[in-house]
Design a protein around this nucleic acid. Structure first.
Length: 449
RNA sequence: GCCGCUAUCGUCCAGGGGACUAGGACGCCGCCCUCUCACGGCGGAAACCCGGGUUCGAAUCCCGGUAGCGGUACCA
């Protein structure tokens, strides 16, 4: 029981869940699930400005969509304030921390005098006013990181960190250590941007007389231009990924591989296998870039693994339409995302789309128009409106007119779909039905220039 | 500035002293399949940041440089 693995995901609710955050959540979740341990969700909401209920809900919503469930929480950091105050008072009482009115200017002045590399050392204010700073002892502070090995920080370089504001409210580096300790967290898995803060947190653990958890700092994720991920980088948040028509399973697979690779470098790894094979120690130390093209490819693979029933459910949920099964069936191998479906197959339900270029190319030439007319009559004369019959009829028209099949198929396609790209022509005709197909061909001919 | 982390194809991941003629995937190019668009198949181009050192031997270990990133808040 004492050896149970306990991890936590502790986002600050600043808005949508970023894919970097999503990856941290996933890695934590993988560790929890593979070890049979627990994942604790904690909302780091000590910055009241940014923490709104809406922002918190967005995070939870993203996690639920990704199907990453947590075992405890969400815990609000703010609500743990009494405990923070208790610990804070204790540290001050034991002179491990002290109140001081030193300002940023004072810190600057100190460095001017002692050198840039010298960590700030303040003096307690006589009246016990001001912010609370933690005392920094001498020696080296070593972060034992599961991913990077050891990172050594010399204590003398470290400023005495402010752990509580003058008004008594506590700061992140203090609260995070107290909370992780109280929650019995055994593994802190988070972004590399926290690595430099870890020594400060280690100091808090030391002041508490507590054994720190194991740390694992994940390399950061960058956009395609190598810069930090932002709105400018396409679908960079979980909600954007969802809106772009990606499947949670594909997103999990893709994100897992951003910074982690197995020995046999496979790319398609289903979630249960991820749980089994994921190893923190094999996480890369290099920052990686989010490449939506690869996600698109991967999503296509996951889409094609869905049964027709499953795909239909997904597409109907995504588009908000119903009765899409026939269209789904003939489009399955042509779409990469759920969002690709409607532009490709919407014409089956809402009529031909408007694509002047396609009309110009395939429905203005007299040859093409004549082929359309021949095709129309061949289709109307068919005994049965089946795939074989339709194909034979249309190929027959091409043979009789001594033109390539394409010169018959494309005019028909543009007539029924409005555009030059669609699911298979014969299949599309069947889904539409003979009457609707013929009507559309008539309308297209009537609209010729 | 100071402190820290990182450096293999365009991108992601593998290789961690000899098996490297550096492997896989996305993307790209070509061919095949083909009614469009895709899917699928086959083939191709494409990388060890630079400089020293250690070693019989370095992509791999060490040092330096350079570059990128992060931290440096009474933010998280």
């Amino acid at each position: 029981m004492a050896s149970e693995t306990r991890v936590r995901f502790a986002p600050s609710p600043t808005g949508a869940l970023h894919i970097g955050g999503a990856r941290a959540a996933l890695y934590n979740w993988l560790v929890a699930r593979q070890s049979g341990g627990a994942m604790v969700l904690r909302i780091e909401d000590t910055d009241r400005e940014r923490s709104t209920p809406e922002n918190v809900e967005q995070i939870l919503d993203a996690l639920r969509w990704l199907e990453l469930d947590w075992d405890e929480g969400p815990i609000s950091q703010v609500e743990r304030s009494p405990r923070h105050q208790e610990v804070l008072a204790d540290l001050v009482a034991r002179d491990l921390a002290y109140r001081t009115t030193a300002t940023a200017e004072d810190v600057k002045a100190y460095k001017q005098e002692h050198g840039d590399a010298a960590g700030f050392r303040g003096t307690p204010s006589p009246d016990g006013e001001g912010a609370v700073r933690l005392r920094v002892p001498g020696g080296d502070i070593v972060v034992h990181d599961l991913i990077r090995g050891e990172a050594t920080f010399r204590a003398e370089h470290l400023d005495e960190p402010v752990i509580a504001r003058a008004d008594g409210s506590v700061l992140y580096n203090f609260a995070v250590a107290v909370d992780d300790h109280d929650a019995g967290i055994t593994h802190v898995i988070r972004g590399e941007d926290h690595l430099s803060n870890t020594p400060k947190q280690l100091l808090v653990y030391a002041a508490l007389g507590a054994t720190p958890p194991a740390f694992a700092h994940l390399p950061l994720l960058h956009g395609h231009d190598g810069k930090k991920l932002s709105k400018r980088h396409g679908a960079a948040s979980v909600q954007e990924l969802r809106a772009a028509g990606y499947l949670p399973a594909a997103v999990r697979n893709y994100i897992a591989l951003l910074g982690w690779g197995d020995v046999d470098s496979e790319t398609l790894i289903a979630t249960p296998d991820l749980v089994e094979r994921f190893e923190l120690s094999r996480v890369s130390r290099n920052p990686s870039r989010f490449d939506e093209q690869k996600l698109r490819w991967m999503n296509g693979r996951y889409l094609r693994e869905l049964s027709l029933d499953e795909l239909t459910v997904e597409l109907e949920a995504f588009t908000g339409r119903s009765g899409l099964r026939a269209g789904a069936e003939i489009s399955a191998e042509k779409i990469q995302t759920l969002a690709d479906f409607w532009p490709l197959a919407g014409f089956l339900y809402d009529g031909p789309v408007s694509d002047p270029k396609a009309r110009e190319k395939w429905l203005t030439n007299p040859e093409h128009l004549a082929a359309l007319v021949d095709a129309r009559s061949a289709l109307s004369a068919l005994e049965a409106f089946t795939l074989e019959e339709i194909e034979a009829a249309l190929r027959g028209v091409a043979a009789a007119r001594e033109v390539k099949a394409k010169d018959v198929f494309q005019p028909v396609r543009v007539a029924i779909a409005g555009t030059a790209a669609s699911p298979g022509l014969f299949e599309s005709l069947i889904v539409l039905g003979r009457d609707a197909s013929l009507a559309r061909m008539d309308a297209a001919f009537a609209a010729r220039i």
